[in-house]
């Protein structure tokens, strides 16, 4: 992480295309060493062969065109959320909204989403990594989306007063948990919600995502199980009106920086620390671990960069300062290009977005290195415009790509992180432009 001086990295082309039944199970290179204060659960890709949601009845996985369109939708809703939560970078967070018409939300038979506020959550179409959690006493197990770009955890709940989408797990049934309770409207936690309401003294939550998906229901508390750990009194949304692109998941685990996130709610237990590893392929397993960084989670060889916390809640901002291609820093990008726009780390966005000046320099340097190696260009695909035809090749040599952060921490991308594969004849640089330098 201190930065590689290598200028090339090898990639086996077939590793980009795992078969539908080729789950390679856990591929962790380091032993899992449980610590007294850490809890670790597996992360898998929602549509990959290791996913508990995959299978004959899960429906067709989305096409690359659909994935990239959903990714653009998420980025646009993220940009909208960032601009509405700050008055320019470093500005004050926006005022919280109360849910209009809130008292009738859970009981309403209307399918309209007009009674929940717009864009209190991101578009979720590409938050494609899922983790197992337990909820209630005795605990019921659920597979939920893992999202560092939002705060409030929620699951679909019985009796589904208005509507529920189809999910793989059984619905959470509050009546069967001895530790379940609704949060009262007077509880200060109710005011922590981005959008809240009140019904007969019970606090209501509402989240509408950028793609039109939404969840509305009771804000509740119960015991959350993460691996072997139990977090008592964990506050979450018990969704009674849920619709949208959540696939077969039971809900969402919010890992943002805001007050309703698990990060903040379990602060006393884990000290506000967590880490994860996303696997190189959708056919492998990564992990999500809460608690102080242990050697098993690579804490010992991690390079850190300041978490910039003055730019509003929820998101994890960092200071990107430069990009290296083939071991050489791209001199055409003034550092102000990054500092003017800001940069955040998101588990739910697929393709890294850069200010246009930075993207143009990166794609140009990458293309020059690929041309020097004689690789054949391919047509652009959706938001990806720097693509290659690897037909007939079993291994390719890519220029290294590194992201350099404030303080010198460096992300020397794994080969699997440099490109995004549509097909063997269309493998593209896995970055896209924000369109300009100010967006």
């Amino acid at each position: 992480a201190a930065g590689s001086s290598a200028d090339r990295v090898l990639l086996r082309v077939d590793s980009l295309f795992p078969g539908p039944s080729s789950c390679t199970s856990t591929q962790e290179r380091k032993p899992i060493t449980a610590t007294s204060s850490a809890a670790r659960v597996p992360i898998v890709h929602r549509h990959g062969p290791c996913s508990p949601l995959a299978g004959a009845h899960a429906g067709k996985p989305p096409s690359h065109a659909e994935i990239l369109a959903a990714d653009q939708n998420r980025v646009e809703s993220l940009h909208h959320r960032v601009s509405s939560t700050t008055t320019g970078l470093g500005g004050k967070p926006r005022t919280k909204k109360k849910t209009p018409g809130h008292s009738s939300v859970p009981a309403s038979s209307s399918s309209s989403s007009s009674s929940v506020p717009a864009s209190s959550g991101l578009s979720l179409g590409t938050a494609n990594y899922v983790v197992p959690i337990g909820l209630g006493t005795p605990p019921s197990r659920f597979t939920v989306v893992f999202d560092t770009g939002s705060d409030t955890t929620w699951v679909q709940c019985r009796p589904c007063v208005v509507s529920c989408y189809k999910q793989k797990d059984r619905l959470f049934d509050p009546a069967k948990s001895s530790t379940y309770a609704n949060v009262s409207c007077a509880d200060p936690a109710c005011a922590d919600l981005d959008a809240s309401g009140c019904n007969a003294g019970h606090c209501l939550y509402g989240i509408q995502y950028g793609d039109g998906s939404y969840t509305v229901g009771f804000f509740a508390k119960d015991t959350l199980a993460v691996a072997q750990d139990a977090i008592k009194g964990f506050k979450f949304g018990c969704g009674e009106k849920n619709r949208g692109l959540f696939g077969q998941t039971a809900g969402l685990l919010g890992l943002g920086r805001g007050p309703t996130s698990i990060t903040v709610q379990a602060y006393e237990k884990y000290g506000g620390s967590f880490s994860y590893c996303l696997p190189a392929s959708s056919a492998a397993t990564g992990y999500l671990e809460f608690g102080p960084l242990s050697p098993s989670s690579s804490g010992s060889n991690a390079k850190t960069t300041p978490m910039l916390t003055d730019k509003g809640p929820t998101f994890y901002y960092v200071g990107l300062t430069g990009i290296r291609v083939g071991g050489k820093q791209l001199g055409a990008i003034p550092e102000s290009v990054f500092s003017n726009s800001g940069t955040l780390v998101d588990s739910g966005t697929v393709i890294t977005r850069l200010p246009d000046t930075a993207y143009a320099a990166l794609s140009s340097a990458f293309a020059a290195a690929m041309a020097a190696s004689g690789y054949k260009k391919a047509a652009a695909y959706s938001i990806l415009d720097t693509c290659y035809d690897f037909t007939g090749l079993s291994q390719v040599s890519l220029p290294t790509v590194s992201l350099v952060f404030q303080g010198g921490a460096c992300l020397d991308l794994d080969a699997s992180g440099i490109v995004y594969a549509i097909s063997q004849s269309q493998v593209c640089l896995g970055f896209a432009s924000n369109g300009d330098d100010e967006s």
């Binding site: 980025v75 397993t285 989670s297 800001g342 992300l411 794994d414 896995g430 967006s439």
Partner: peptide
């Protein structure tokens, strides 16, 4: 705003510590 997406995070241990206000990257974590 720029966004570091999940494709680029693959195989790295991505570490968040709200109390120390740091984000970390560790290669070869999975």
């Amino acid at each position: 705003v720029g966004i570091v997406g999940n494709t680029q995070q693959r195989t790295y241990g991505v570490l968040y510590d709200v109390s120390k206000k740091v984000v970390g990257f560790a290669p070869g974590a999975c």
